[in-house]
Design a protein around this nucleic acid. Structure first.
Ligand SMILES: [Mn+2]
Ligand SMILES: [Mn+2]
Ligand SMILES: [Mn+2]
Ligand SMILES: [Mn+2]
Lengths: 248, 248
DNA sequence: ACATAGATTTAGACGAGTCAAATAATTGGA
DNA sequence: TCCAATTATTTGACTCGTCTAAATCTATGT
């Protein structure tokens, strides 16, 4: 006999750990839409269009159209026909909760389970919807309540307030000769992250900007080598001036 | 800017980490049915009836009827009309894989995140479907490849073979005066587990059987007190003779 | 001012997973 | 042996998340 005794839990559309402002049931799919809206809104500063969401989530426009209608009914987004959506305060809370789960999971995977910071995203992206508040909090505790995840993204605290990032500068805007420390590597394709990891560019790394802007390229010197980065990539890397006490 | 950049991942019925014998897509719901079939089959030694599954999963008989048809088509169960199902070898592999995830998660939660063994089940029951092979293996490694989970249930190894349990005896079959160590507490309701935890009965605990069978009750002495347990509960506890070297 | 390109929504369909009601098979008593 | 009670299956319907094709709205440029 070896039955585990998984007492009744067929859960197609329903049993996730929910404890938010408005206690409606929010599916994993809805959570992903909300996260996407949050990200695009932060990124562009504008209302999020149907097509932007469709692109981001790799889904067709009609699918988005019907989903945002549902989100609007649930009070999670403000929707204006033909004008896209914005998150409501409730919606933003949902986004922050998922983001907290996501980033804590990423931190946990790198710090306790020896994952590389380039590999954590997909795993966290699945688990974020199924982790309870309690588990998130335990992870945070075990990690000493880290303020940022392995990419340098800020982690909302237990009450979902987001510590505001220091005054970071985009690497692409740095000047020749600047000595900087990487604060944050904004999310991008797997290949790009892997390239950066190989190049020695990751949160915490110290760089010297060697050469700027020939043909949309920027060259930096890492402790081990000199690297050229496309401006598109350098735009997604945030740095601060090296303060000269983060030696080895 | 604080977008996480969760690149496109709306995943309603689809993107779980799958790498099994027959590479069909197996949903979380299907996984739960398979786990249930495995548990009931182990438990009763007989073909699993539609109604047994319906009871176990808290779902109606027609729902089970259609689902087992699908599982049969996928080659995961042998179905005989009106006679219930058995797992095929493929189905058993799926069950063992999920069981591995489940039990490793339970172990991890208790050992690294300070969960009580009575609280781990629900969390593991959700996460088991969303954990990758890689993550399971990392957890196993971090834990030193434990042979059993916090309830004493054996954990299938990476190749999904199940270490066979020692020759355990049900506590209900012990005799007066026996000094035993609890090996395993079979799954049961939350309330029962909590009761046992309060009573000082958990895997590893040493008990002396004080009194047996008056009115379906059995009385044991724990290090701290004397406890009476209903036979129904004692039937689900497995023990081995104390070998006299598991002192403090 | 208005035609048209482009974005958005509507309409209709589908697979998954579920249910209630109706029907059919099995089984164990009489 | 045969019938009633139990169990299982079929049928038809519903929700969720998705799609394609068609209709409709918005915005742009002349
Ligand atoms: Mn996700
Ligand atoms: Mn991140
Ligand atoms: Mn489960
Ligand atoms: Mn267990």
């Amino acid at each position: 006999m070896t039955g585990d005794g998984d007492r009744g839990d067929a859960d197609p559309g329903g049993e996730a750990p929910e404890r938010r402002a408005s206690s409606e049931v929010i599916s994993a799919v809805m959570e992903d839409y909300i996260k996407a809206i949050y990200a695009i809104e932060r990124d562009t500063g504008e209302r999020v269009s149907t097509s932007a969401l469709a692109d981001y989530l790799d889904v067709t426009a009609p699918t988005v159209s019907s989903m945002i209608k549902k989100l609007a009914e649930r009070g999670l987004v403000d929707r204006e026909e033909y004008k896209g959506v914005t998150l409501t305060d409730d919606g933003e809370l949902v986004a922050l909760e998922i983001l907290r789960h996501h980033r804590l999971l990423e931190s946990f995977l790198t710090e306790q389970l020896d994952y590389s910071w380039v590999d954590v995203h997909d795993e966290a992206d699945r688990l974020e919807h199924h982790v309870s508040q309690k588990l998130s909090d335990r992870i945070a505790e075990a990690l000493g309540n880290p303020p940022v995840d392995p990419h340098g993204d800020p982690i909302p605290d237990a009450d979902l307030s987001l510590p505001d990032a220091g005054d970071a500068v985009r690497l692409v805007d740095a000047e020749e000769g600047d000595r900087v420390v990487v604060q944050r590597v904004r999310d991008q394709g797997d290949a790009e992250l892997r390239y950066l990891a190989d190049a020695g560019v990751w949160p915490g790394a110290e760089l010297v900007v060697v050469d700027v802007a020939p043909f949309d390229m920027l060259t930096v010197e890492t402790p081990s080598a000199e690297q050229s980065l496309p401006a598109d990539v350098a735009r997604l890397i945030e740095v601060e001036p090296a303060t000269d006490d983060e030696g080895a």
